[in-house]
């Protein structure tokens, strides 16, 4: 029989690593999403094209392959990353490529009339973006970003492939060492789900806060 303390000592360090990867990966992803998403809306053909190639490349090759490539092939070109660095980089780049579509889509979803009203009120380009377009677009972005954050959380489960001991890896270790299959896997299923729920709750709270309210 398994003691609860055993379960905690096996799984807990993995939980912490999974959370670290999720937070850092998503921060990187959000930064990339905004940079690449706005680049795709740029007037410059050169910027638009490079942003397009970036997204197609990261969305077109499997994340699993990218992880291997970053860890095993990049060092051959003199760029050695620790497993943790490789994981954050690949998670962030991959998720950021998908999420750039969220940023672009939200900006394009704004009615053209809002832009025209800004021009009629003589706001400068920066003021249009900062005061009128972005506040409205951000609100549209929250639900899809919530999904994207959860998808990245789920993707962290593959980092055991490059020898990181995340939650999934720990459950595997526990299975081989204790011979118990059901408890470790059920535990981490519930933990993943709890983390996913937490993310979507936080994002929903953020959405409520950003929704304009009448005084």
């Amino acid at each position: 029989m398994l003691a609860p303390s055993q379960l905690v000592s096996y799984i807990l360090p993995g939980v912490i690593l999974t959370i670290e990867l999720t937070v850092l990966g998503n921060l990187l992803a959000a930064g990339i999403a905004f940079t690449v998403g706005f680049a795709r809306l740029s007037k410059s053909t050169w910027l638009r094209l490079s942003a397009r190639i970036f997204t197609e490349f990261f969305r077109g090759t499997s994340m699993y392959v990218q992880l291997f490539w970053a860890y095993f092939v990049l060092p051959l070109f003199g760029l050695a990353l620790t497993p943790f660095q490789a994981a954050v980089l690949v998670l962030g780049l991959n998720s950021g490529a998908y999420a750039s579509e969220i940023v672009r889509g939200a900006m394009l979803a704004l009615p053209r009339e809002q832009l025209e009203a800004c021009i009629a009120l003589n706001l400068s380009r920066w003021q249009r973006l900062r005061r009128v377009l972005l506040p409205q677009a951000l609100l549209l972005m929250i639900p899809p970003f919530s999904n994207s954050f959860v998808e990245l959380l789920k993707s962290t489960s593959i980092v055991s492939l490059i020898s990181l001991s995340d939650m999934t890896f720990r459950a595997q270790t526990m299975r081989t060492q204790t011979g118990n299959t059901a408890i470790p896997f059920l535990t981490i299923l519930i933990l993943y789900f709890a983390l996913a729920l937490f993310i979507s709750k936080v994002m929903r709270a953020l959405e409520r806060r950003l929704t304009p309210k009448a005084a």
Partner: peptide
């Protein structure tokens, strides 16, 4: 024709925004 008020600001803010900024 379609008013084009800024939906995320109250009426007062809609009116004061441009004089303050521009």
């Amino acid at each position: 024709q379609q008013f084009n008020l800024f939906p995320h600001m109250n009426v007062l803010r809609n009116v004061t925004l441009a004089p303050i900024l521009t």
